[in-house]
Design a protein around this nucleic acid. Structure first.
Lengths: 267, 267
DNA sequence: AGAATCGCGTGATGTGGGTCACGGATATTC
DNA sequence: GAATATCCGTGACCCACATCACGCGATTCT
């Protein structure tokens, strides 16, 4: 059912291998490949000096050799929960939804991955199956490294292994924040407030109000905080009525951050 | 408030440094130190070829130098949520409770750590504060390595860094299982069933029944699955009545594993 | 040995929010 | 420009579970 050789599960994708000009159709790759990865790296200003930048030249060279690039349309899956791990993906552009679901169709969204993140890292390192499903929610370009190549690379370049450990630590801590959101709050109010604060924490606060984009449906938000779609709708309504925030299309304006925080803190 | 030099927060503890015979009172350390770590390692049969075994001799030597050993009584804290990371602990004997709590006193127990596990790893690697509190629930012996020593060690020995990455991956996946338990089930029945199955999964099944120890109070179980103490008591009662399990003191006998599994699967 | 604490069992009660069931508003397809 | 799907808003219902309250054994102080 799942493709063996190719990174994705077989929906439209355009792959190029690291060495040589591939025969498959290319969309966004540029030559030479050595540059590409560095580009992707540099494109992440908030993650400067991260992951695979500033490695020794041989490591970078090696990286470029084991990396293949591919494009994925909306709706494609990079990997599916339960599949044996094939390797890691480095998200270059676009957003990817990481989710898990139970037998009865219930879905829990763990996070929305942003460019520059590594996907499938824990599974690839530990050798266990992917623990989440990675769905492309907007056209995406990603680099892929197979498990064997990646592990060999890490064995050879210890410095990179340490970086990977750091990345894993942060992945863990992000997951842990999710646990707190879901586990430590009783009311849906509180969960939604936590979620909004967490989500907005990357964005700058301008004289008390924070403005950001929230390109998620109520259904998806519900799946992120462990609530029903209707409850999310109603709670949003409540927040609007209490002048805590405004919503216009997919843009949200937090008008009273403190108010939200008080919902989280106290009872 | 929190001790700077010593691993724990200052309750009774007995420390010996890696090199030289320390002046502080010792309880369980043996000389020479190089052997001790290997001992601890070997003492973990189910984790053979793990973490720090089978490293090059120089790495082991170095490890023994940066490790200090300490004993902790019941109730002590190895570290507390929010404290800046001081280093990692390797649990030699005893059990440690990892928990997080919210401002209003609500507590969520993440897991009960067993001997041979590393505690405080994500925080130490990433440099962020400890994300959980580690409470000793039965007399415990643990080895400690300071953050700087540990990071330098990893920088020097890339092989060890890779092992650490693997350990982190599994820590992550354990946390993820917790997310699934809490997030993907909406009846308390289901959560308790998931919990019992997970908890018993390490123990052998003898002709359909699994027998294991569950040295946790209902209160603590409640905090692990995100429910109230009374609900846990009642649900246990329900399971007993339905002949799913028996309880005698702290030992639990799962009489009908399939029955529990059906509670998790279907609605 | 009394006292205090802790863990367990159980009843009564109230409610938050899941679920169902619509209807209207946009977006998407043909 | 229908037709269809997707998303949002809202009312009605009701039940699982949190909460409160209390009583009863078993531990552990002192």
């Amino acid at each position: 059912m799942h493709g063996e050789q190719t990174p994705s599960n077989g929906k439209f994708q355009f792959v190029t291998r690291g060495r040589g000009r591939g025969a498959s159709s290319t969309i966004s790759t540029r030559s030479p490949y050595g540059l590409q990865i560095i580009e992707n790296c540099v494109a992440c200003p908030h993650k400067e000096s991260r992951l695979f930048c500033n490695l020794e030249p041989e490591a970078l060279q090696r990286l470029s050799e084991i990396t293949s690039s591919a494009s994925y349309p909306k709706g494609a899956s990079l990997f599916v929960e339960g599949q044996p791990a094939r390797g890691v993906f480095i998200l270059c552009s676009g957003h990817v939804k990481l989710s898990t679901s139970s037998a009865d169709g219930r879905t829990l969204i763990l996070r929305i991955s942003e460019p520059c993140e590594l996907l499938g890292l824990p599974a690839t390192i530990s050798g266990r199956p992917y623990e989440v499903t990675a769905n492309v929610i907007e056209p995406t370009q990603a680099n892929f490294m197979s498990q064997v190549d990646f592990l060999n690379f890490l064995k050879e370049f210890g410095e990179a292994a340490l970086r990977v450990a750091q990345e894993l630590s942060e992945t863990y801590q992000a997951a842990f924040a999710e646990i707190r959101t879901i586990g430590l709050s009783h009311s849906a109010r509180e969960k939604l407030a936590r979620f909004l604060l967490e989500w907005s924490s990357n964005h700058p606060s301008e004289n008390g109000t924070i403005r950001f984009n929230l390109a998620l449906t109520h259904e998806e938000i519900a799946q992120m905080i462990g609530a029903s779609r209707e409850t999310v709708t109603r709670t949003f309504g409540e927040f609007k009525k209490n002048n805590l925030l405004q919503v216009k299309g997919s843009s949200v304006i937090l008008k009273n951050k403190q108010g939200l925080e008080s919902l989280v803190q106290g009872n």
